[in-house]
């Protein structure tokens, strides 16, 4: 042989012959099986390239794998797997759902998701509501009734939903805008309304407002402002104010009225999903029995 490789005196190992500034590199090669393992991984990746859609312009790969179709199939399988529970929810009465721990837990979990999808935009992620006419669903103050059946009715048909004949509908007159009361009279009525929850400051104005209140407001809101859920008239004597409870907000409500809206979900959601929503709202703690 031309040049016998140099042998390092200390370790007894041959050198590669490379030298940098007097330092020489020992030749300590990897085992051959390691090399073959490396080749095997390359072969594996080539196989993968052909089997799966990895190369551009070659379609789906030999296995015909399309991620979108697989996701769709997976989704359909999950829907089908949920169907037995959904069927039970459609058939069971609300009290039965609440009494059955398994059904209740399923409904609360499903209802939480459905609430996030359809309701949280207005009512908040935890049903806490938002300022400006989006009521809290966790408290005990209900415009249209807080029993589960009443809530189910409200979800199904909405409030002032234009496309639903059974929708919840109430109409308060715009007392100032339509010329029914003068601005001074509106101020007096507002003072009276504040006094209903013990917050009045001007007894004379409140007294003037009381007679105007009796003429114009008691039909819906009741003599002491206790409200009427049949008509969707809110209580004016409690601590919860949908549009703000300060004097200016109350005066504005009297002057121009308020008319919040909510879509009718009966045509959009599966009856089982609406059931789950009701049970979820019940779990928030503010509902009033069956």
């Amino acid at each position: 042989m031309a040049n016998a490789p140099e042998r390092d005196a200390h370790s007894g190992t041959t050198t590669t012959g490379h030298e940098w500034d007097g330092l020489k590199e020992l030749n300590t090669p990897l085992p051959t099986w390691w090399l073959w393992t490396f080749y095997a991984t390359i072969a594996f990746s080539l196989l993968w390239l052909v089997l799966y859609p990895a190369l551009p312009f070659t379609g789906t790969g030999l296995l015909g794998s399309i991620a979108r179709q697989e996701a769709d199939a997976d989704h359909a399988a999950r829907i089908a797997a949920a169907e037995p529970m959904l069927a039970r929810l459609r058939q069971a009465e609300l009290p039965e759902i609440l009494a059955d721990a398994e059904l209740r837990a399923y409904a609360i979990a499903g209802g939480r998701t459905a609430f996030g999808n359809s309701c949280a935009g207005c009512h908040g992620a935890g049903g806490q509501g938002a300022a400006g006419g989006f009521p809290s669903l966790a408290d005990d103050d209900w415009l249209w009734g807080g029993r589960l059946a009443e809530i189910e009715q409200t979800i199904r048909h909405g409030i002032r939903a234009p496309d639903d004949a059974e929708t919840r509908l109430s109409q308060m007159p715009r007392f100032l805008a339509d010329g029914m009361l003068t601005a001074a009279q509106v101020g007096d009525v507002a003072e009276h309304v504040l006094s209903l929850s013990g917050r009045g400051t001007d007894a004379a104005a409140a007294a003037r407002g009381a007679s105007l209140f009796a003429e114009n407001c008691v039909a819906c809101h009741g003599e002491r402002g206790e409200g009427n859920r049949e008509l969707g008239a809110p209580s004016l004597a409690d601590a919860v104010w949908l549009y703000g409870g300060d004097r200016a907000s109350v005066a504005r409500s009297i002057s121009y009225a308020r008319a919040g809206v909510m879509p009718a979900w009966g045509a959009r959601l599966d009856p089982a999903v609406i059931r789950m929503l009701v049970v979820y709202l019940h779990s928030l703690g503010g509902t009033e029995g069956q």
Binding site: M1, P5, T15, L35
Partner: peptide
């Protein structure tokens, strides 16, 4: 067949046969 030690540096295998 020459053993790896008998080969020139350039000809030495990069991988060690298993003993």
């Amino acid at each position: 067949i020459p053993s790896p030690e008998q080969l020139a540096p350039e000809e030495q295998p990069l991988y060690a046969p298993r003993k």
